[in-house]
Amino acid sequence: MSSEGMKAGNNVSTVMQFVLLGFSDLPNFQGLLFGLFSIIYIIILIGNSLIIITTRLDPVLQKPMYFFLANLSFLEIGYVSVTLPRILLNLWTQDRSISLLACAAQMCFFLLLAATECLLLTVMAYDRYVAICHPLHYPLVMSHNVCVRMAVGSWISGIPVQIGQTCQIFSLRFCNSNQINHFFCDIPPILKLACGDTSVHEISVYAVAILFVAVPLMLILASYSKIISTILQLPTARGRAKAFSTCSSHLLVVLLFFGSAAITYLRPKSNHSAGIDKLLSLFYTIVTPIFNPMIYTLRNKDVITALRKLLFKFKN
């Protein structure tokens, strides 16, 4: 072996601990970012918790749409809790180290909840499709038992795939650098640190992204194309406006979440930029969970009325 090759071989060391660089490139804004993310986290927790409580207690909201909305809100709380507390800890202590096991656990839970959200948003689109396009069959098609099975299926379907993908990613050897240029353990920045050829792992990531991002997105768009077609055929402008109002909130969440996730996971590795990846991940990790309670409450009269009744009870 040449002296150059021996030197390169000697320099390779297996990484057992990572450093999440996060927002370290903004040293003067660490306190401001901590305050901002703390407020965002509190808003997400309170907003989504209120939706869960309201949809469970108000008799008017005992409908499939609100059952799935409560599931989505519960999911958003767990989803954001996988990433934001770690971001806050890093900003507060300025200690950005994270063990290999903790990093793998964070990625696994993040991927599981992300897959669940993709499937749950698809189920919600199907619920709106049946409600608007086949209203007479709605009580039968979307019975309580069917809704429960669909919700459970959304929660558990991604478990074997995402656990397998996490194990595959962390079976790689990481050498020379242990610095993750991101604020949590996501797949693209982790793959950049891997030694050797990662093409097989990249293909696996694309396959899973197609399964849990591209396919659900196509199903959702197909549902909404039918929904829009049906709405346009409604005889009254008031009926069309009400139907559009019901669906537009869901569609907005879908576009924010799926759009940013698709660009992140379906781009070639060579096109990945740390700055763009961080910006895009903010949309599907923070923006969507904070918008979810706002969009669904501000655009839904039933939820607003139920929230007012709930708050009135607390005051008295």
Rank of each mutant, 00 (worst) to 15 (best):
S3D: 13
M16D: 15
L21W: 10
G22E: 01
S24H: 01
D25F: 03
G35S: 10
I40L: 14
I43A: 15
L50C: 08
L50V: 03
I51R: 09
I52V: 15
L57W: 10
D58L: 00
L61A: 03
Q62Y: 05
Q62L: 03
A70K: 07
N71S: 12
S73K: 03
L75T: 04
G78N: 04
G78P: 06
T83W: 02
W92Q: 05
D95N: 11
C103P: 00
F110T: 05
M124W: 01
R128F: 01
R128P: 00
A131T: 09
A131L: 11
L136H: 12
H137L: 14
Y138P: 01
V146E: 06
A151K: 00
A151R: 09
V152N: 07
S154L: 08
I156G: 06
G158A: 07
G164Q: 09
I169D: 07
I169V: 13
F174A: 05
N178D: 11
C185Q: 08
P189R: 07
L191A: 03
G196V: 08
S199D: 09
S199F: 09
A209Q: 05
A214N: 01
L219M: 13
K226N: 13
T230V: 03
G239Y: 03
H250L: 15
H250K: 06
A262C: 11
N271L: 14
S273N: 13
D277L: 15
L282M: 12
P293L: 07
M294N: 02
R299G: 08
R308G: 06
K315F: 02
